[in-house]
Amino acid sequence: MMSVGVIGLGDMGSGLAKNLIANGFETWGRDILPARHQAFADMGGHAAADTAEVGRNVHAVFVMVMKGAEAHEVILGDGGLAQSMAPGSSILLTATVKPSEARAIGAGLEGTGLQLIDSPVSGGYPGAQAGTLTMMAAGTDAAMAQARPVMEAVSANIHRVGSAPGEGQTVKACLQSLIGAQFSATFEAAALAAKAGVPGQVILDVFSTSSAGCGVVKNALEKIIDRKFEGTGSHINTMHKDLTISMALGEELGVPLHTAASAMQIFHAGRTRYPDGDNWTCTQVIEEIVGAELHRDGAKVTR
Rank of each mutant, 00 (worst) to 15 (best):
R148N: 07
E287K: 04
H72E: 13
D78F: 00
K67N: 09
D297E: 13
E152S: 08
A104S: 09
V206D: 05
S184T: 15
T112S: 14
F187S: 09
L20S: 11
H159D: 02
V255N: 07
T112H: 04
H72Y: 06
M135N: 03
Q201M: 12
Q284K: 14
D11F: 15
G123R: 00
F62I: 06
G88E: 03
Q115Y: 05
S234V: 07
S163Q: 14
E53S: 11
F62W: 10
K195E: 12
G166Y: 01
Q169C: 14
E293H: 12
L253Q: 10
R36M: 11
S14Y: 12
T302L: 12
L294V: 06
L257E: 01
L243T: 04
A147F: 01
E293T: 06
G10H: 09
A71Y: 00
A47Q: 07
T238A: 12
V150Y: 04
L92P: 03
C174T: 11
A138I: 00
A181Y: 07
V255C: 10
S14D: 11
M1F: 06
S177Q: 14
D11S: 15
E230R: 13
F207K: 04
T170P: 12
G197L: 09
E167W: 01
H258M: 08
V216L: 12
V54N: 05
C282D: 02
V161P: 06
V97R: 01
E288W: 05
A147M: 04
R36C: 10
P275Q: 07
L221T: 02
L20C: 13
L116P: 01
A145D: 13
A22M: 13
P34H: 08
I117E: 03
R36Q: 14
G113D: 01
A248S: 09
V65C: 08
K218N: 12
D205T: 06
G168E: 08
L204D: 11
K67D: 08
S163G: 12
M144V: 11
G131H: 01
H295Q: 09
A71F: 00
C214S: 15
C282V: 04
N279M: 10
A102Q: 00
T283I: 04
A185Q: 10
G162Y: 00
G127S: 07
I21M: 14
G88F: 03
A71E: 01
A47M: 08
M264R: 15
I286F: 04
E53T: 12
I289V: 15
H159Y: 08
A292K: 02
I236H: 01
V63R: 00
S3Y: 06
G29V: 10
T96E: 02
Y125I: 02
A35Y: 11
A269M: 15
D118Y: 00
L116D: 00
G291Q: 06
L257N: 01
M136T: 07
S84L: 06
T170E: 13
S119F: 03
L92T: 02
G15R: 03
L178V: 15
G68S: 07
L249R: 08
S262N: 13
S210K: 04
D78V: 06
Q176M: 14
D78W: 01
V54R: 02
A82M: 05
D50V: 05
